[in-house]
């Protein structure tokens, strides 16, 4: 039974509900929602506000004949079966790596992207710290704004793995970072984080997360700007790392 104690801020939830949060960050919110009934209630309330805004919204004139066209399509059997198809749930087992079991929602997304084994990801390791980019088609901030061929500012979606007791190099963020604990836990100067906890950080935060000693810690990390090392040694390493 999971009862997360760290939740996404309400303004980020609003962007998620309105559909204006970038898909990469939306992914982190969705996985948290699959683990947090408290935030599911908040989502329901925010959707209620959306419904009220919609029901009071302005009207745009419709093309003539549109209503007749749609009324005529109501009993279209082809449409019926198409709808049924799109509503079918994917059946997947959670992805596992030893004792680590990923949430079902994330497992489904990874399997759909062709990842059937966490060890098949390309892991980069520095001491007790490892990270792997997830090959997800979530790069564009908005589909209407895809810059042709350039994804330089594209958010990165990664798995981070800390060995028991391992400390991440002290760092801050050039952009936003969403961290969701998937297994184990970690602490930093601001608090203690367990499975399901979501931390939304920006460049105001300067921290050195330390994994709990009783097991490895696996997190989902979504960033839209590079990390920036701030420790006495780390800051000399910035030019050499692609964190």
């Amino acid at each position: 039974m999971i009862h997360p104690t760290h939740h996404p801020p309400i303004d980020i939830m609003q962007e998620y509900v309105a559909g204006t949060l970038s898909p990469a960050f939306g992914l982190g919110i969705e996985i948290h929602l699959s683990l947090c009934s408290q935030c599911c209630e908040k989502r329901a309330l925010l959707e209620q506000v959306g419904g009220a805004v919609l029901s009071m919204g302005g009207k745009a004139p419709l093309s003539s004949g549109l209503q007749q066209k749609i009324m005529a399509a109501l009993e279209d059997l082809a449409t019926d079966s198409e709808m049924a198809k799109s509503g079918r749930a994917l059946q997947t087992q959670p992805l596992q790596d030893g004792d680590i079991v990923l949430p079902r929602a994330l497992s489904q997304i990874l399997r759909a992207a062709g990842v059937d084994d966490l060890t098949s990801l390309k892991w980069r390791k520095i001491g007790g710290y490892g990270e792997a980019d997830l090959p997800l088609p979530l790069f564009a901030k908005k589909a209407t704004e895809i810059p042709p061929g350039t994804f330089e500012d594209a958010p990165r979606v990664r798995l981070l793995r800390l060995a028991p007791g391992a400390v991440m190099p002290r760092h801050t963020h050039k952009g936003k970072e969403l961290t969701l604990v998937l297994h184990g836990g970690f602490k930093d100067s601001a608090g203690n984080y367990e499975v399901g906890d979501l931390i939304f950080a920006d460049s105001d935060i300067d921290h050195a997360p330390e994994a709990h000693y009783n097991g490895p810690c696996l997190c989902l990390a979504i960033t839209d700007g590079p990390l920036h090392l701030t420790g006495p040694i780390g800051k000399w390493l910035n030019p050499y790392l692609s964190l």
């Binding site: 999971i2 683990l35 079902r104 929602a105 992207a113 209407t144």
Partner: peptide, 22 residues
């Protein structure tokens, strides 16, 4: 969102044991 983005959306499993239903 589906029409513009065509991204993969998770279909949440109602059997998800982690999620306490209201």
């Amino acid at each position: 969102v589906d029409m513009l983005r065509k991204t993969i959306k998770p279909v949440l499993d109602p059997e998800e044991p982690d999620l306490q239903p209201n």
